[in-house]
Amino acid sequence: MKPRLNVIWNEIYCKRCILCVEVCPVGILSLEMDEIVEKPGCIRCYQCERYCPDIAIEVMDEGEKSS
C-alpha cells in the first residue's frame, strides 16, 4: 500500500463503492488496482469522511499529518 498523505484508508472496511472518489471536490482520490490512491492537494474538506458509509476513510488530524 502506498504511503498516506492526508487520508487514512481502512482496506478491510472499504467495499470500493468509490463514493469518496466521486465526492472529492478537488478529485485527488482514485481507485487504482483495487486500492484508494490519493494525490497531493487535499483541501481537508472532510467530504470523503462524511459521505463514506463504511467508516473506511478518515482525514488525518493536523498533528498526525506533520509527523
Partner: peptide, 24 residues
C-alpha cells in the same frame, strides 16, 4: 465510534448502500 460494534465491521450491506450512512 463507541456506539458502533466495530469488531463486527465491515457491515453486510452492499458497496455504496445508504444504510451505512444512516447508521453512521
Amino acid at each position: 465510534k463507541e456506539l458502533l460494534k466495530l469488531k463486527r465491521f465491515p457491515h453486510t450491506w452492499c458497496p455504496g448502500c445508504g444504510i451505512g450512512a444512516v447508521l453512521k
